[in-house]
Design a protein around this nucleic acid. Structure first.
Lengths: 209, 209
DNA sequence: TAGATTGTTAATCGATTAACAATC
DNA sequence: TAGATTGTTAATCGATTAACAATC
């Protein structure tokens, strides 16, 4: 339907990202193909919606059979342009920072924790995930030298704004915020705040009603 | 416009939860009132949409002034029915489990980590957050005795399905999954999978295009 | 009074869904 | 052939947005 070169809408890009996760996992579980209904069961996205999203870019499925996981993975990666490696920096080497750096969840999608920084001299030099912790004041050089495009904040709320300012000063325009703090940043910086408690309240509402 | 007793749509409930987070933080920052435009800046939800969402339940704002934070917090909590305390159990006392249990992010919204369990005997008895780690096999009794309604999985992907099965067997119907695994659960169980890598790919798409 | 911001309308756009022919 | 599942249409519903009068 579309030529294929327009920018995706926010909704479509979000859904395609979720299909990507399901396909990655299904592949790890040894599956070869998957139906729109199965993807729907894992994502709670309507199966018709899934077929519609995919068929806008080509005929990727086989009627009566479903979608080949490997080839669909390739197609979606092409659409989302996420085929390369992306370097990120993690700010904060506390428990959350360590958990993030050691998790396979990023590597699986081509995202590489290229550096970890902390203000605490005790933590500098320690190994976290695959890298050694650097001093927070070296942030600017690290961002430049390692070609980093995303900063992940794993610091207490009271330090989050300062850390965000440092990331912005270093040139980053995408920040993932794992603290509960609200961040004030320039207009052209995207902040993604992840707050499990908010998601939980929302889930509870539907449970209680 | 609405009588006020219908079930909220998924979209409205999700947005109201996010307003709740912004208001909670703005209050901590010492603010008394806030405009729909300010909430919009923090959430990326259109200001008209915010006013529309709120005015469906009453006239909570003052023209020319904005919304009083305390009273709006109360109104939204009433709408979302999140005024009580909710007990949750955390499965897994590793780095991520410790980070979650020690974070103020849940307590702030009336969510109480009432128990932490782990299969590793080394970890049982250790203090994490405000509770002592219990043995995983006691899960069922803990859920019953402590009136727990939500289970949070902070375990490696390879153990996630087993842990989910145990939570379901214990009677829980809401699971938060912080592993990358796909979980097979009965129809009436809600699974919320949080995958920062997926969110990141999605953010990158808009950055790169 | 002047400036700001809500509450509300009206118009548009994208998401959702059921249904089903096409076809593997 | 029989069963399954895609690709697509058509109809509906909710989200989004601009605009502005009301009013603090």
């Amino acid at each position: 339907m579309t030529g294929g070169n327009e920018r995706l809408t926010v909704g479509v890009a979000a859904r395609l990202s979720r299909y990507l996760q399901v396909l990655t996992q299904a592949k790890k579980m040894g599956k070869d193909r998957i139906s729109s209904q199965e993807i729907s069961d894992y994502t709670n996205i309507n199966a018709t919606q899934i077929r519609r999203d995919l068929s806008a870019f080509g005929k990727f499925g086989k009627r009566g059979v479903g979608y080949n996981i490997d080839s669909l993975l390739g197609e979606i990666r092409k659409i989302l342009r996420t085929q390369g490696q992306h370097n990120i920096v993690l700010v904060g080497a506390g428990r959350l920072g360590e958990a993030i750096a050691s998790s396979p969840i990023f590597a699986e999608h081509g995202i590489n924790v290229a550096a970890v920084v902390d203000t605490d001299p005790e933590k500098v030099g320690r190994r976290v995930g695959n890298v050694d912790v650097s001093a927070h004041r070296e942030l600017r050089e690290i961002i430049r030298d390692k070609n980093i495009i995303v900063g992940v904040l794993a610091v207490p709320a009271e330090n989050a704004q300062q850390a965000a300012d440092d990331l912005v000063a270093g040139g980053l325009r995408i920040i993932f915020n794992y603290s509960e703090a609200l961040l004030d940043v320039p207009q052209d910086v995207q902040v993604h705040t992840s707050n499990p408690a908010v998601d939980l309240l929302y889930a509870l509402y539907f449970h209680l009603t």
